[in-house]
Every structure is written in structure tokens, then in C-alpha cells.
Write a protein that binds this DNA or RNA. Structure first.
Length: 596
RNA sequence: GGCCCCGUAGUUCAAUGGAUAGAACGGAAGUUUCCUAAACUUUAAAUAUAGGUUCGAUUCCUAUCGGGGCUACCA
């Protein structure tokens, strides 16, 4: 890689010029800004202490030595404290010719030994997936792709919250008011049917609380004593005691939910290698709690509840097991972590979970550390920001959510309307057209969500957020389709270049060079995205690339160019660009349409 | 109250401590006898406030103001 060679040469040049060694980590080399002539820039300021000369003078001296030392350099300029180096066109051209058809470009050919377990999605079986889950799923799926491309063997796991007091709530509501309604009889998707009863519970529960408060109870007391919540607790107790009827209903309702989830996952285009159920891990969690008690790391109270005291570390006391012996979220997560470690011995266990659970994961890690678990330090909570609506946070208890299925369906129909309006694919058969609308609609949705830094909260306005023009998924997909059309024509006219032919002697236009530079950056981009666990790096990159290509395409002829060398160069550039756009989108979980 | 995160054009997002803070949407003005106009070109418009560290701060530190989250025997 050129940066490395440049750094070494700079080291040598500095020693030659100032007879001193210099800490290379202080030297920054960056790609030259677009508006300025040059390809790589060395920031000179850190050198001034040892050069004892003006920034301009220092830059000039260093530039001259480098020019002599590195044959690929053909010139430089100095602006203030910045040394801008110019590489010869041959350098860019040979890179282009050598890589434009490499399928494996930007994909690591070395696989690491140790696995990464990546958890995402993690739905509750009592409510359908909503926009927040969409962000979660897209992030997880994309990260799995990005890590794989960087040579990490990834195990995609989904942890289903299939048990707990919240599930009992929808079970209770169904027992009371459900009759024998099924997804089939109601025509509702399974997860939607469950969600309906969860909301029903919350509504009635709230009413009971209000009634009790009217009788003089505090809100807390009312929340604890309302008949519905007490009944739900009883169901949880029965469930943990393996009561037959309870288990039967639980299985039936969860089955409905899974069917619904699977449909949504399929439409969204995400999948998993392994599904864990909390009902299978909570007992292991309880064992760990017992172990903690024996080791004296945890303490039990008189009422039988088990706690960990983290006040010495600036946190609070945290409950790990209820007084009635039932387990809580944390108990389950302890077991899940253990099981995952036993199954895969991963080098990293990444949890894609919203930032509202930062505290929970902080505690989880500390508990496991105190238990002396070797995998505790390998736990990494990839904490992503909330998706907010214009009116604020989504509240599934109140049914104030953007439903995942509805949203996607809306995207598809909007994509269809847009396409028809533009008169793009009127000759497409119906099935193919529907496929295209899904590709474009999902492209818009996925790009919109993934282009934002995962750590940050983001706003989603159902009426305005999704666009198909400008900095959007469809814009990038369009660029891909456009190139594809161009290349098809080139093939038809037998104009495609031969791989072993170098377009020699041609001068690169600015627009061409800009694209080549971006293409060359692709491997670093995928690495950065993996290091930072951040798909937005890829999203912003591929937008830049598409934008640069459109700029080029608008102003410079490709097939119409009469000079065969230039035509060949531009075709290579186009083929390479389409390939890298396709790969980048793939990393984001976005499909690239051949036509649109 | 305590702990954590975030304040960048009208709006939604960018910017490894480096050059004149980038885009997109929206606003204004243009480009189609020419490889897909879901495109391209031009234009107006922003770092919450006050200090500090630094040759250099949107970025690091402190305070203030504003927004969000957590602080459940919910998940």
C-alpha cells in the first residue's frame, strides 16, 4: 500500500534532512482534499520542532527528497503547512488494470480461527417487530457481512425473549378475552395477534391502576396490587413450575409469533445461523446465581431475593433473582452468555442492543467478571441509538409504533408509484416489477437507516424521511443500473477491454482520477467499518463513489469516445465502479438491480 | 436528585486534533437533438453559550443552557 511506502520514505528523508529520528505516529498522511491538486498530503506542522524552519520551507525540503526517492511521485506543491504529493498517472492506471475484474477485491482471503458471535434482533414474542427492531436487524446483518469480508468467521445468533412476565401478560389477556381466536380465524399475522392481546392487557391494567389510585393507593402500590398483574405473576410461577396447561398455551402463542417474525425477517432479508430461546437459558442463569452465592460474590436477602452490590464501583445494587425464585432478564442473560461461550468459544461476543440498555450490559459484564468467567471481557455491547418519531419515542405498550411490515409494504408501493411515474419499466412482467419495487423500496429504507452512525439517535418521519432522490439508496442503485446498461451495450458492440491490455500513455482526467482514488480506498473502508463496527462508513463511502461516477458519466463520453485507449480505460473504470458499488451495497444488505 | 449520551445550514445526516466545516432534502436559477434526467451544473444558508489545553478545536477538558436515556422483584 502506498501510504506505508510513503511513511517509510518520509522517515528516511527526515533522518537525512535533520539527522534525527522522528516518531512516525505523530506524522499524519491523508488523502488530499478534492479541491486541491495532489493525491496524498503530509501535514508538516509536527516536523517544525526538529526542522527549525518555516512550514513552507520544511515542506519544500521534504517534498524534494521524496520526489527523488519515490519514482511514482511526479510532483508536489506546498500550501501553508501541507505538502501535497502528486502520483504519476501510470500508478493509477496500473492499479485500475490490475484490479478492475478481481472478484475478491476488498475481501479478506485469510480467515481467522476464532469465531465472533454476533447477536441481533432479539425480539419479544409479545409484540410485532417495529422500526426500532428494523434498525437493530439491519445493523446486525450488515455487521455480520462486514466482519466476514474482513476474515472473521461470524455466527449470527438471535436470542428470543420467549418467557418472562411480559409474555405472561399477553397469555393472560388471551385466556380472558381471546376465546379461540387464531391467526387463521382472525386473518391476522401471528405476531400481530399476540401484540393485540399485549396491548389489551396494558389497557385493562392501566384502568385497574387508575381505579385503585382512586381508592387512595399510590401509583406504585396500585401497580403492584392490581388483580391483573397478580394473575400474570401467578402464570409466570406456574410456567416455571412446568404447569401443563400454561406451557401448552405458551407454546401455541409463541408458535404464532415465530411464524410472524419469520415472514418479517424474510421480507427484510435478514437471517440467522442459530436461534437461542431464553426459556432454554434461564435455568443455566439460575445455576450461575447459585454459584455466585457460593463464591460470596452475590448475597441473598431475608425474603429470598438475590442481589449483587456494585455500589463500590459507582453503580447500584441489582436484583438477579426474585424473592419467589423466578428469574429476571439479567438471570437469563447470564445463562445465555455462558451457553454461547460453551457452544463456540468465541473471541468476541457482540450484542447489538439499544442504548437504553447500557446500564444492563454494564452490570452483566461486571457480574460475569466477579464470577471470574473468562469470557466476561469478550462481551461487547454494540449500543445503538433510538429511532425517534416526530412526536417522540415509540411506545409499544401504547401501540404507538411504526410497524415493520406496514412500513416495508409502504416502501414497496411508493417505489412502485415512483417507478411508474418515471415510466421506467413499463415492459417488465408483473412479478419482475414487484421484485424491483421491493429491491428499491428496501434499498431506500436500509440506506436511510444505515447511513447514520449507529451510536447516534436518529429521527424517522414516516411522511418525509424516505426519499428516492439525492443521498439515498435508490440513487446508488440507479448508478449501478446505469453502469450495467452501459456495460451491456459495450458487450453487445464487442467493445469490452481485454484484461491484459494496459491503457498506456493516456492522461487521466480529474473526474477519472477521483473515481480511481475512491476505488483504491475501498479495502481500507471495509476495514475501518469492521474496526469501528460501523456500517455507516460503508454507506457514506458508496454514496461518494456513486456521486463521483455520475459526475464523470455526465461530462465524459464512454462508448462514444473514439480513441480506443480512452474508451477502454473508461470501460474498465465503469466495470470496477459497478463492482465496488455492488459489493458495498451487499455489505449493507442492499440488492443492486440490473435495470431500474 | 444521581449516572450516561447528544446539541453542526430551515430539515435530515457527514467531517482519524489540520487547509475555505461537506452532502442531501427544501428555497432560487439552469442543463435533454448525446451511453438511463431516480442524473448533472450554479447559488443562498450552520459548529448552542462561556472559558481552557494546542502551532492549530466541530473534535479534547471545565462550566452553563437545551434535548434524550437509565436509575423496576419490566425486558
Amino acid at each position: 500500500m502506498f501510504e506505508k511506502r510513503l511513511l517509510e520514505a518520509a522517515q528516511k528523508a527526515i533522518r537525512e534532512l535533520y539527522s534525527q529520528d522522528f516518531d512516525l505516529s505523530k506524522l499524519t498522511i491523508e488523502r488530499t482534499k478534492k479541491e486541491i491538486e495532489g493525491d496524498y498530503t503530509i501535514v508538516i506542522f509536527p516536523l517544525l520542532k526538529i526542522s527549525r524552519k518555516s512550514p513552507e520551507q520544511t515542506a519544500k525540503e521534504l517534498g524534494e527528497v521524496l520526489l527523488k526517492e519515490l519514482p511514482v511521485l511526479c510532483g508536489f506543491n506546498v500550501i501553508k503547512g501541507f505538502l501535497n504529493l502528486i502520483l504519476s498517472d501510470e500508478y493509477w492506471l496500473s492499479f485500475l488494470a490490475g484490479n478492475y475484474q478481481r472478484q475478491e477485491y476488498g475481501i479478506s482471503q485469510v480467515m481467522r480461527e476464532e469465531k465472533v458471535v454476533l447477536e441481533y434482533s432479539s425480539p419479544n414474542t409479545n409484540k410485532p417487530l417495529h422500526l426500532g427492531h428494523i434498525r437493530n436487524n439491519l445493523l446486525g446483518y450488515s455487521l455480520a457481512n462486514i466482519l466476514s469480508a474482513n476474515g472473521y468467521p461470524v455466527v449470527k445468533v438471535n436470542l428470543v425473549n420467549d418467557r418472562g412476565i411480559h409474555i405472561c401478560k399477553s397469555m393472560l389477556a388471551y385466556m380472558k378475552w381471546g376465546g379461540d381466536e387464531t391467526p387463521k380465524s382472525s386473518g391476522l399475522k401471528g405476531d400481530k395477534l399476540i401484540g393485540k392481546y399485549y396491548v389489551l392487557f396494558e389497557t385493562h391494567y392501566k384502568n385497574e391502576i387508575r381505579d385503585l389510585m382512586d381508592k387512595g393507593l399510590t401509583e406504585d402500590e396500585a401497580g403492584q396490587q392490581a388483580p391483573l398483574i397478580m394473575e400474570a405473576r401467578e402464570i409466570l410461577r406456574k410456567w416455571e413450575a412446568h404447569d401443563h396447561e400454561t406451557i401448552y398455551l405458551w407454546k401455541q402463542m409463541n408458535g404464532w409469533a415465530y411464524q410472524g417474525f419469520n415472514e418479517t425477517y424474510k421480507t427484510l432479508g435478514v437471517d440467522f445461523d442459530r436461534i437461542y430461546y431464553e426459556s432454554e437459558t434461564y435455568l443455566l442463569g439460575k445455576e450461575l446465581v447459585l454459584e455466585g452465592l457460593e463464591k460470596g460474590v452475590l448475597n441473598s436477602r431475608e425474603d429470598g431475593s438475590v442481589w449483587i452490590d456494585l455500589s463500590a464501583e459507582g453503580l447500584d445494587e441489582k436484583l438477579l433473582q426474585r424473592s419467589d425464585g423466578t428469574s429476571v432478564y439479567m438471570t437469563q442473560d447470564l445463562g445465555t452468555a455462558q451457553l454461547r461461550y460453551d457452544d463456540y468459544h468465541p473471541s468476541q461476543m457482540i450484542y447489538v442492543v439499544g442504548n437504553e440498555q447500557n446500564y444492563h450490559f454494564d452490570v452483566l459484564k461486571r457480574v460475569l467478571l466477579k464470577l471470574g468467567k473468562p469470557y466476561a471481557p469478550r462481551i461487547f455491547h454494540l449500543s445503538y441509538g433510538m429511532v425517534e418519531l416526530p412526536e417522540g419515542k415509540m411506545k409499544s405498550r401504547e401501540g404507538k409504533v411504526v410497524d415493520a411490515d406496514d412500513l416495508m409494504e409502504e416502501m414497496f408501493s411508493t417505489a412502485g408509484e415512483m417507478t411508474m411515474e418515471l415510466g421506467k419499466v413499463s415492459e417488465f412482467p408483473g412479478k419482475e416489477a414487484r421484485k424491483l419495487f421491493e429491491t428499491i423500496g428496501l434499498g431506500a429504507l436500509k440506506y436511510f437507516i444505515l447511513k447514520v452512525d449507529p451510536k447516534k439517535n436518529m429521527l424517522f418521519d414516516p411522511k418525509e424521511s424516505i426519499d428516492f432522490n439525492g443521498n439515498t439508496g435508490p440513487f446508488i442503485q440507479y448508478t449501478y443500473a446505469r453502469i450495467n446498461s452501459l456495460v451491456s451495450k459495450a458487450i453487445a458492440q464487442q467493445l469490452m477491454p481485454h484484461q491484459d491490455v494496459l491503457p498506456a500513455g493516456s492522461r487521466l482526467m480529474l473526474q477519472e482520477k477521483e473515481i480511481i482514488k475512491l476505488l483504491m480506498a475501498y479495502p481500507q473502508i471495509t476495514k475501518q467499518a469492521a474496526d469501528e463496527l460501523n456500517p455507516a462508513v460503508v454507506a457514506n463511502y458508496v454514496y461518494d463513489l456513486a456521486k463521483s461516477y455520475n459526475h464523470f458519466y455526465q461530462e465524459i463520453p464512454v462508448l462514444k469516445e473514439e480513441n480506443a485507449d480512452l474508451r477502454q480505460l473508461r470501460l474498465m473504470l465503469s466495470v470496477f465502479t459497478a463492482s465496488v458499488i455492488g459489493k458495498s451495497l451487499k455489505l449493507l444488505g442492499i440488492d443492486s438491480p440490473e435495470r431500474m
